[in-house]
């Protein structure tokens, strides 16, 4: 790890003043579960680390029936899982966080950190940059791309968004609050994630001197929701494919549906094709299967990851069936 100076501000205004106006100079420390690893591997070499751990207003989880849920960006994943209101009103968020499994990571990792964590792409982690290039040549298309994107992968980005919570939060219609030198702005979480076109860009709509402060989730009363993740190991592993589904039913008929895939594209991937299959139908295994098929109908797998198309299709199908059976 390269030596850095350390700041531990107690207000968000102070934190923003301590950050740099260009990427790479200063890094934010939230839970530290991944950011310290990136620094140890010299993928991230900031001269200053700004911890958000002492900023009280970034913590907390509050639910109000009229307005919904506010998650402080620095609320830990354990706090999310243990929140009675979240368990009752947004069970899919609890399932998504529980998929992380390791109690140590749940205790340290934050909601904001989950959303802003850097990709797991092994070329990026080995020092080839966010777009995994060596002397201008893209390494992923002909390389070890078994864990890379199957959708939104026309380049130059091929990594997958690693967030556990984002698919479910987007399916629930969440937005985020971002604080910077110009004050607070709100962004729909579906617009927050970006596919970078160059190594200097980031994977989300944050400037180098902005911080994520809150995640706001509208009330979900009357919906049914579930997620389904496919992973190789039961613990200490990222999913290969995931799906989040939120259904509004009218009797047994689907009135509206949100289907969002995770770990299949550089951003969490909404699947309107699947939603179109579901609306107006009664959920059955055949309907869920058809929706899964529609969700991946535009997939363009790389040389070694065609298997992920099937995993994503099944993840959508099973998330739909689970949502229809239970949910909130």
């Amino acid at each position: 790890m390269q030596a850095f100076e350390y700041a531990n501000p107690t207000t968000k205004e102070e934190a923003v003043r301590l950050l740099a106006n260009q990427w790479g100079e200063a890094e934010i420390l939230a839970g530290g579960t991944d950011s310290l690893s990136l620094m140890k591997d010299h993928v991230s070499t900031p001269r200053r680390v700004v911890s958000l751990q002492a900023i009280k207003e970034l913590r907390g989880i509050e639910f109000k029936p009229a307005t919904g849920l506010r998650l402080g960006a620095m609320a830990t994943l354990s706090e999310l899982i243990e929140s009675a209101a979240v368990r009752r009103e947004y069970p899919a968020l609890v399932e998504a966080a529980e998929g992380v499994r390791s109690p140590q990571i749940l205790n340290m990792g934050t909601v904001g950190g989950d959303l802003c964590q850097r990709p797991r792409c092994w070329y990026f982690r080995a020092g080839y940059g966010l777009l995994a290039r060596d002397d201008g040549k893209a390494l992923v298309p002909e390389g070890e791309n078994q864990y890379h994107a199957i959708l939104g992968n026309s380049g130059p980005a091929y990594f997958v968004n690693p967030s556990s919570l984002a698919p479910a939060l987007i399916a629930l219609g969440a937005k985020v609050r971002v604080f910077g030198p110009q004050g607070t702005r709100e962004v729909g979480l579906d617009k927050f994630f970006l596919t970078p076109a160059s190594d200097d860009q980031r994977e989300c709509d944050l400037k180098a001197n902005e911080i994520l402060t809150d995640i706001l989730v509208p009330p979900a009363k009357g919906t049914k929701m579930a997620i389904y993740e496919v992973r190789q190991r039961e613990a200490l592993d990222y999913p290969l494919a995931a799906a989040a589904v939120v259904l509004r039913l009218d009797g047994k008929t689907v009135k509206s549906a949100r289907v969002v895939l995770g770990h299949v594209a550089p951003v969490p991937w909404p699947a309107p094709e699947a939603e179109a299959v579901l609306v107006g139908k009664t959920i059955s295994e055949a309907v869920a299967d058809e929706a899964g098929k529609a969700a991946v109908s535009k997939a363009t797998p790389l040389s070694k990851n065609a298997y992920k198309v099937q995993l994503a299709r099944v993840a959508v199908k099973r998330a739909i069936l689970r949502a229809a059976q239970g949910g909130a």
Binding site: N8, L36, S37, V49, S51, Q53, S78, Q104, N107, M108
Partner: peptide
């Protein structure tokens, strides 16, 4: 709470 000591800065 259980944490990974490798992922916590001593200063923090």
């Amino acid at each position: 709470k259980a944490v990974y000591a490798c992922s916590v800065l001593a200063i923090a």
